[in-house]
């Protein structure tokens, strides 16, 4: 991993030096174990702060929009497979132009889900850790435990089919062999009845406190005015009651249909551990089945929700 980080830093330094980019969006070490933090690098010497490992769970495509990077010239961005696909979606949706970004693809073996990790140690505080091959040895007050990396990977990463950014200008490390999901989706939700699934989601969504961390961490949630923020007139209630909250999550899922790349950033961002990943994963499958489309692979694609085809399935029309 250090080797990749070294290469990454050198790559970024070179890009900055050669003025191929003015600002690079990446990750640096966070203040807590297992936390990275997004970083914006304009100066070559700051490139040494860059890291890349399984703690880099934020989807950086989020920062390609709005005022965050505007007026900063050409942007370089470090991209896992999912970040890369989100960037492609931004291009497809005319939010940015391909030539406006330099995509730095990076070898990604998946990122961890801190909540899973906390559960593995009985929610005790982890103070430090070290990585030994596929094992992660975590330590806290009065305990030391060896964990398998696979057990704490984010669900979205376990199901990931596209670990490499589909489009890139530079690639750091070797690309992960494509089209080999690390493990097939073992989503037992699929086998449940619709009532049971509804009960599952009711339970999950009831934990939601409406902080919108999911939406705000989502690279594709870039609406200038989100439907939940419509205030003139107000579209629906703002309190965390199950009905309103459920509508929020359902509409958000529908609105990201054909756009969501199942990066899992929403789930990882949630402070109360609402598992939203199955919604995205299922919606991706639905879009693939119905329209033969996979979001974020082709910058020239027409998004299925912005298109009509005679062949489109229409069995739902009575």
């Amino acid at each position: 991993m250090e080797n990749i980080e070294e290469q990454l830093r050198e790559t970024v330094k070179k890009l900055l030096k050669e003025k191929k980019v003015d600002l690079v969006i990446g990750y640096s070490k966070g203040t807590l174990p297992f936390h990275s933090t997004p970083v914006f690098i304009a100066d070559e010497k700051d490139a040494d702060n860059l890291i890349f490992d399984f703690t880099c769970g934020n989807n950086l495509a989020k920062y390609l929009q709005k005022s965050k990077v505007k007026n900063h010239g050409k942007i370089g961005i470090i991209a896992k497979g999912c970040d890369g696909r989100s960037i492609v979606q931004h291009i497809v949706e005319n939010q940015i132009k391909r030539e406006e970004v330099v995509i730095i693809g990076v070898h990604c073996d998946g990122v961890i889900d801190i909540r899973k990790l906390e559960e593995k140690v009985g929610r005790k505080e982890i103070l430090k850790y070290q990585v030994e091959n596929d094992k992660i040895i975590v330590e806290g007050k009065g305990f030391k435990k060896s964990l398998s990396k696979q057990d704490i990977l984010s669900d979205s990463c376990i199901a990931c089919k596209y670990p490499n950014s589909p489009v890139y200008d530079v690639f750091v490390g070797n690309p992960v062999p494509i089209a080999e999901p690390r493990k097939p989706i073992t989503n037992n939700l699929e086998s449940l009845s619709s009532d049971e699934r509804w009960a599952y989601f009711e339970k999950e969504i009831s934990k939601c406190i409406r902080c919108y961390a999911c939406r705000n961490a989502c690279p594709l949630c870039y609406c200038e005015e989100c439907f939940v923020d419509q205030s003139n007139p107000q579209w629906f209630g703002k309190s965390p009651n199950l009905s309103d909250t459920m509508i929020f999550h359902i509409v958000r899922t529908l609105h990201t249909a054909g756009r969501c790349v199942s990066c899992g950033a929403c789930t990882r961002a949630c402070p109360t551990g609402v598992n939203l990943a199955p919604l995205g994963i299922r919606m991706e499958k639905e879009i693939k089945d119905r329209f033969g489309y996979t979001a974020g692979l082709d910058t020239e694609a027409t998004p299925p929700m912005a298109d009509w085809n005679e062949e489109d399935k229409q069995e739902f029309i009575m």
Partner: peptide, 8 residues
């Protein structure tokens, strides 16, 4: 800059 402006 890095803040997502959520209310967590």
């Amino acid at each position: 800059r890095k803040c997502l402006n959520c209310a967590a």
